[in-house]
Amino acid sequence: MIELMLFAIGYAVLAMLVCIRLVKGPSGVDRAVASDCVDTLTTVSLALFAVFSGRSIYLDISMTLAVLGFLGTVIISRYLEGKL
């Protein structure tokens, strides 16, 4: 089923589009929002590729990426808040 691979490539392209906002965002908050979004899109792309290729190891990588992205977002926002 090739559509899974096509949509995985589409999500990866969307993640690259968000990198525009990541580069030119005016403040740190915009960059934090954009990096959270990049993380979500990359996780979805990896999960679709894992299901397409039938290998479960990519799914482990995407779960790790989701956990680390959540922790990074929370820690960056604590830092911007001034409590770290």
Partner: peptide
């Protein structure tokens, strides 16, 4: 099972992280 765990994890953690970012933006 792994995909279901991933869905549940995202549903739980997305409100937390967006609340943290919004509060940080106000304080910033």
């Amino acid at each position: 099972i792994k995909l279901g765990c991933l869905c549940v994890f995202f549903i739980i953690t997305n409100p937390i992280s967006s609340h943290a970012i919004a509060k940080a933006a106000y304080k910033f």
